[in-house]
Simulated assay, not measured.
Amino acid sequence: METLSPNAAANESVTPAPQKKRGRGAWKTILQQKYLYLMSVPFIIWLFVFNYLPLMGWTMAFQNYKPAKGSYLEFSEQKWVGLENFIKLFQDDRFYLVLRNTLAMSVMGIIAGFVIPIAFAIFLNELKGKFFKRTVQTVSYLPHFVSWVVVAGIVTKMLSIEGGVVNDILMGLGFINEPIQFMAKGEWFWGIVTASDVWKETGWNAIIYLAAIAGIDKELYEAARVDGAGRFRQMWNITLPGIRTTISVLLIMSIGHLIGIGFEKQFQLSNSLVTDYSEVLDLYALEYGIKISRFSYGTAISIFTSVVSILLLLTANGVMKKLTKESIM
């Protein structure tokens, strides 16, 4: 009988398993979970069609696109201009004014839209009466389902100089002698948009924090009470650290959307007197791109927004990972 040397025996004992077995194991898992994979197919198709396929339209930013000459994918028909549209974008003084408005409202929205829902969720969690607690929660998130068209009408009416509730209260308390035209003051527009957004979304944004708070071990609170900790100390030392991961993830995602804030609320609340404070990047792309058939210019604005959003997301994720060891990728 043939004998193996000690080195040969050692090499044979550490020989890795054949790759074919791993492949068969993976296919076996796929076959066992085939219905789960089949359920995900419609969502993958939706993601590809509506999120990745439209990226082919980015080629318009590097063309002098003319609809009459055919599709933007018909490269031989369209005139290529390179970075000309981006150069025009960065040379336009209006672009920097719009960028200022976008960043200002985004930062104010992130600060107020994070601090207030977190505080609301924590204090709501401290309520003892279940009926009252559920009633407050239901009433608080109902505005989320109201369209910005309706919300803008409510806000405009409340701030009106004729029968506006806010002016009536201020005059009744003696703070002012005549009504204030809130909607005509550009420097107040950012605050009005932020306050409206907070009122509309606070209850809805608090739901995820309430879910995170519900996952905290109740024994931690019991131990804290035994040690003599009051309710505020429990909130500071147990509740907030318990939802730190949720806060970090949502903050990173919010920073990623810092300049892609949409335009619905600004469009609905704006008027000709506050345009210099209300116009954001998406409205700028609509007004100076799509409406006047400058499709290539509008596409360049959208590319700028997308690229900066990705860079902000990666930067925020990296900084948060170093500071708190939390990240989304």
Score class of each variant (00 low, 15 high):
L210T: 02
Y52E: 04
N51E: 13
R24F: 11
I161Y: 09
Q33W: 15
A206R: 00
P16V: 08
A195F: 14
F120K: 02
E12M: 15
S196W: 06
W148N: 06
A112Q: 07
T194Q: 07
I310S: 05
M171R: 08
F145H: 02
G215I: 00
G109W: 00
Q137Y: 02
K79Y: 13
L159M: 02
T324D: 01
G260W: 06
K21M: 10
L73V: 03
N167T: 03
I116K: 04
M183L: 12
I176T: 11
F90Y: 13
W204Q: 03
S306R: 00
V98R: 00
M183D: 02
L258Q: 03
F90T: 09
K291R: 14
I154G: 09
L4E: 10
F182Q: 04
T299R: 11
N101R: 02
L170C: 07
T138E: 00
W204G: 07
I301T: 05
A68R: 15
T15K: 12
P143Y: 01
I45C: 10
F114V: 09
N177D: 15
S296H: 05
E74M: 12
K133R: 13
N101L: 03
A104Q: 08
P241L: 07
S140A: 14
A223F: 07
T29D: 13
M158A: 04
K157N: 12
E162D: 13
D217G: 08
T324Q: 09
D197S: 14
V165H: 10
I176Q: 09
Y141D: 06
R100D: 04
A229Y: 02
L286V: 04
W236G: 08
A152E: 06
L220Y: 06
L323Q: 11
G82E: 05
T245W: 13
V150F: 12
N125G: 07
Q266N: 15
F123P: 00
Y284H: 02
A17I: 15
F48L: 12
M108Q: 03
A61R: 03
I176F: 07
F114I: 01
T135A: 13
V307P: 03
G70Y: 11
L53P: 06
I208H: 02
F75W: 10
Y72I: 14
F132I: 15
Q266L: 01
I208Y: 05
V307I: 12
L311R: 03
F123V: 04
L47D: 11
K185S: 09
I261T: 08
Y96D: 01
A212T: 02
F232H: 10
F114K: 13
G191V: 01
T59F: 04
E222R: 09
G172L: 01
N51M: 12
N271L: 05
F114N: 13
G242T: 00
L286G: 07
L97F: 11
A224K: 02
L4C: 07
M235P: 08
I261E: 00
L173S: 00
A26Q: 14
Y37E: 01
D92Q: 10
E126L: 11
F182G: 00
E178D: 09
A26P: 06
V280H: 03
E178R: 10
V165W: 15
A61W: 07
L323K: 14
V150Y: 14
F175C: 09
A112E: 01
L170W: 05
F43A: 15
G318M: 11
W199T: 05
S106N: 12
L240I: 13
W80S: 09
F175E: 08
I161C: 11
I118T: 01
I122W: 01
F50G: 09
